[in-house]
Simulated scan of single mutants.
Amino acid sequence: MRNMERNRGHIATEQRHPNTTGLDALTTSECVELLAVDHRDAITAVQNASESIAVLVDEVVNRTGRLIYIGCGTSGRLGVLDAAECPPTFQADSGKVIGIIAGGDASLRTSSEAKEDVFEGAHEELNKLELNDQDVVLGITAGGTTPWVHGGLSLAKSKGAFTALLTCAEVPCACDHVIHLDTGPEPLTGSTRLKAGTATKLTLNIITTTYFTKIGKVYGNYMVDLKATNDKLMDRGIRIIEALCNISRDEARALLIDSHKDVKAAIVMHHKSVTREEALDLINDAGGHLTQLL
């Protein structure tokens, strides 16, 4: 019977790392240090891809639709994680950044590697989203060859969405844009949850942080679109208001409570001497950008 599996030995993430061939013989301290040092390559890879990452962010900013991550295994989990962190960090709508993983939410805890070989595997979930030309779909696959991801990108492209691939391998892709993170071989051969995963997580953090900064969710380096829903966020909100309004902590707390714990509204209420409702109207008129109001 003819073998059906593809030889992926030429892909960098599948190759043997020349500096870690004796990994199993190291002491615990030596192993920890080696793995930590090797992860420096993840930072370098992301820095080298910064212009390519910026192109993707500009596409998301310039479109009115959604940013949709699709991936399998570690790549899929990282996409779901980044999407889940956007609402509490930026008070973003949960439908603005969406993470889809092969096998569904169950795959966040239990691996389902076989799913990634199905080219049409992502189609059902993507069709539910009714993709259009204002959406951006980012396929995430460290090794670059995952059929589930490429199939999803193919469908998204046919629907008019802007499509991109985030990968740590040099591979062909029939999409609109490729972000290549050149992390090289893994210290544990083929284990892309290591520095490839680290570089991927960092890149996703950068994409969404830059995106939400560009659309007014950030003022200076403060996350001003913050809803104080617990003690930690209440404290953070108070300190942001203190700094941006130059008032005491007690005054900032009272202002935050009057704004229904909406930091951005509280700041505008103080600077414009308006009610909460008036502040919200001003914020809306400014497209959410405090820079236009302060």
Score class of each variant (00 low, 15 high):
Thr110Arg: 13
Val136Cys: 08
Val136Trp: 06
Ala102Leu: 07
Val97Phe: 06
Pro147Ile: 00
Arg77Ile: 08
Gly139Cys: 05
Asp117Gln: 12
Gly76Lys: 00
Ile140Val: 07
Cys173Tyr: 11
Gly99Val: 01
Val171Leu: 04
Ser75Gln: 11
Cys168Tyr: 04
Asp176Pro: 06
Asp82Asn: 11
Lys159Cys: 13
Thr167Ile: 04
Ser112Val: 15
Leu108Ser: 07
Thr110Lys: 15
Leu78Ile: 08
Ala161Asn: 09
Leu166Asn: 05
Ile68Val: 09
Ala106Ser: 15
Thr74Asp: 04
Leu138Phe: 00
Leu129His: 02
Pro172Ala: 09
Ala174Met: 15
Glu85Tyr: 09
Tyr69Asp: 08
Lys128His: 10
Val171Phe: 04
Ile101Phe: 07
Ser94Pro: 15
Gly144Leu: 03
Ala142Gln: 05
Leu153Asn: 00
Phe90Tyr: 12
Cys72His: 07
Ala142Phe: 09
Asp135Met: 04
Asn132His: 10
Lys128Glu: 10
Gly144Ser: 02
Leu165Asn: 00
Leu108Gln: 05
Thr141His: 07
Val80Gln: 07
Gln91Ile: 14
Leu81Arg: 11
Ser112Trp: 15
Asp135Pro: 07
Ala114Gln: 14
Gly139Lys: 04
Val80Cys: 10
Thr145Ser: 13
Lys96Ser: 14
Gly104Arg: 06
Gly76Asp: 02
Leu166Ala: 05
Thr146Lys: 03
Phe119Trp: 11
Glu120Phe: 10
Ile70Lys: 00
Gly76Ser: 02
Val97Ser: 06
Asn132Asp: 11
Asp176Cys: 05
Glu170Ile: 12
Ala156Pro: 01
Leu138Asn: 00
Val171Ser: 03
Ala142Ile: 06
Ser158Pro: 10
Leu129Val: 02
Glu130Leu: 15
Leu131Val: 02
Phe119Ser: 13
Thr167Tyr: 02
Cys168Ser: 06
Ile68His: 05
Ile68Thr: 08
Thr167Gln: 02
Lys128Asn: 11
Leu153Phe: 00
Ala114Pro: 13
Ala174Cys: 14
Val137Lys: 04
His177Phe: 07
Asp117Pro: 12
Ile68Pro: 06
Leu81Lys: 10
Val136Leu: 06
Arg77Lys: 09
Gly71Val: 03
